Amino acid sequence: MRFTPLLATTFLTVSSVSANFNIASLNINTLVGNDLGPDNKYGAPIAPWLPNHKPGWYIGHSPTHYPELPCLRGFICRVLAFFPFHLQCPTPLPPPPPPPTPPPSDGYHQTFSNLTGATQAADYLTFGLVDTVADCKAMCNGVTGCDFVNTYHDVNGKGGSTQLTCSLFSQCHDASDADNVGGQTQADGTVDFITNSDGFCKDS
C-alpha cells in the first residue's frame, strides 16, 4: 500500500481533532495521490480498450509492485471512508463454503428410481424378500454373476407382504426394462401392482 508522510500525518490529525473539524476541507486527491472520484472514473478515466489507458487502483497483497496506484487495503480504506462519494475499498466476501463431500460409495450406482414397473429380463437370477435396499445389494454380492438389483413393493402380491421384493440379474438394466407393472389376480381376488421400483447396477 502506498503511504506518504502527508497521508499519515493527515490521518493522525483527523483522528485526533476536535468534533468541530470539517473533514470536507481535506483534499482527497492529495491524500491518495489520485483522483478517485466518479467524474474521473475512479482513477481510470481512459477505458482499458483505448490507447494510453492506465488502471486507477490496485487490490492485492503486493502494493510495492504498483507504487503509482492506491492499494485499496488497510490504512487507506479508513481515509477513503471519510469521502463517501469517492472510490471505497471493497468489503471482503466471506470464504466460499467447502465443496460437499460425496457420500461413500457402496459399490452400486442407481439406474432408475421410484417407478411403477419392475425389471423383467432373460438374465434373471433369483428373487426374494428383504427389509432394505442394502439387504438386496448384500444378497447380490453373494450371488455369483449378479450385477444388478431391482427392489420394489409388490402391492397385493407376495402373499400380502409389505417387504421389498429383491430381484437379481446378471446384467445392468435401465427404466426401459422395468415393464412388469403387475396386474396378476391374487387368490383373494385382488390385483397386484408395483410401486417404489429402484434399480442399482454394480460399479464394476
Rank of each mutant, 00 (worst) to 15 (best):
F11C: 03
I76C: 06
G37Y: 14
Q184C: 05
N196M: 11
F21Q: 08
N22Q: 11
G56E: 02
A47M: 04
D106F: 04
P63K: 00
P100Q: 00
T111F: 02
H53D: 12
F83I: 09
F169S: 06
P63A: 03
L93P: 00
G56C: 11
T10G: 04
P97Y: 02
P103F: 00
P63L: 03
I59P: 00
V143R: 10
H173V: 07
C136A: 12
G43Q: 01
N40E: 07
G43W: 03
I76P: 11
L69S: 03
V143K: 13
C77M: 05
L26H: 09
C166N: 13
A138G: 14
C89E: 04
D131K: 13
Q120Y: 06
E68R: 01
R78M: 10
S113Q: 11
S113L: 11
Q171G: 12
N141C: 07
T165C: 05
P104N: 06
D179Q: 05
N196E: 14
V133L: 09
V155M: 09
T30L: 14
L69R: 00
D123P: 05
F21T: 07
C166Q: 08
G145K: 07
S62R: 02
K41I: 03
S62V: 00
D203A: 07
F85C: 03
L31G: 00
S113N: 06
C146A: 10
V14H: 05
S167Y: 02
P90W: 00
S167A: 15
L26I: 05
T13C: 15
A122N: 08
A121S: 09
L168F: 02
H65G: 01
S167H: 01
H86I: 00
N22I: 11
Y108S: 06
I76V: 14
D131Y: 14
V133A: 08
D174T: 15
N29Q: 13
A19R: 04
S170M: 10
P51D: 03
S204N: 13
C140A: 13
P63N: 02
T64N: 15
D179H: 10
G60N: 11
F148Y: 12
Y58F: 15
L31T: 01
